[in-house]
């Protein structure tokens, strides 16, 4: 491997050879991230469209299914993610105003929020698995435990479909949270090394955009899965 021709001896960050300037590279990278976010929207969008269709076909299934979700958990997770979005934005802000120490703190809190979010998810998942509320064919609801959970409601035949949506949507979202946490960890380490400042913080901003998108998806998932009427 030879990357020696990118050798950098200046104190100013060196931009890649095919860009005119660091600013040119920054703008291009950011646009690349936005294009990527556009693909994410369409990827999650497929699930949302499927949700819209099946909610239209089987409103009862979704209404009763959502009784198994706990709004308190969902609302807490919403607040946690919104707060992490704030700290992520502040991480970039502190890079912009060259306050390395506060940037490190902000990014660390963001990762911590990610852990809290996943912890709550774990509680929710294990509870549902315990009750046998599994997706589709795997649905094996325990009648007694369900009755103590939501009372004696007649469950629709295809209640498993709701849990398919629940697990697919939150599962794919959860994978994104984990990836986001990994990426934030990566920029956190680089921030600690003092690699970022007002002149160069592209990776922090790119990772931040990704993290905000994960938050955006959750903003829609919360009412769709926890508050269906």
């Amino acid at each position: 491997m030879s990357t020696a021709n990118h050798g950098n001896t200046h104190s100013v960050r060196h931009h890649a050879h095919h860009y005119e300037s660091a600013e040119h590279e920054h703008q291009s990278s950011k646009e690349g991230v936005w294009v990527f976010l556009c693909t994410e929207i369409l990827m999650f969008g497929g699930l949302f469209v499927a949700y819209a269709i099946f909610h239209h076909l089987f409103p009862e299934t979704f209404k009763i299914g959502s009784k198994f979700t706990d709004v308190r958990y969902g609302a807490t997770n919403t607040v946690v993610l919104l707060f992490s979005s704030l700290t992520m934005a502040l991480g970039i802000y502190y890079c912009q105003i060259k306050d390395q120490k506060k940037a490190v703190i902000a990014l660390s809190i963001t990762i911590l929020c990610g852990f809290i979010f996943m912890g709550i998810k774990y509680l929710e998942y294990s509870h549902k698995i315990h009750l046998g509320l599994l997706p589709g064919d795997w649905y094996a609801g325990n009648a007694d435990m369900i009755a103590s959970e939501i009372g004696n409601l007649k469950l629709p035949e295809n209640i498993g479909l709701y849990f398919s949506f629940y697990f697919m949507m939150t599962g794919i979202h959860g994978i994104h949270v984990l990836i986001g946490m990994g990426l934030i960890g990566w920029v956190l380490i680089r921030t600690m090394r003092g690699e970022f400042g007002p002149n160069y913080y592209t990776p922090v901003e790119g990772v931040g955009l990704f993290w905000h998108l994960v938050d955006l998806v959750w903003i829609y998932l919360f009412p769709l899965l926890y508050l269906v009427e």
Partner: peptide, 25 residues
């Protein structure tokens, strides 16, 4: 490529999930 391929991605993921978990979509 950017606009259409992600929908294929989620479709084949759902197809795989359908084969593994029988999600029923």
């Amino acid at each position: 490529q950017v606009l259409a391929t992600p929908v294929l991605a989620i479709t084949v993921v759902l197809l795989a999930a359908e084969n593994i978990f029988g999600i029923g979509f």
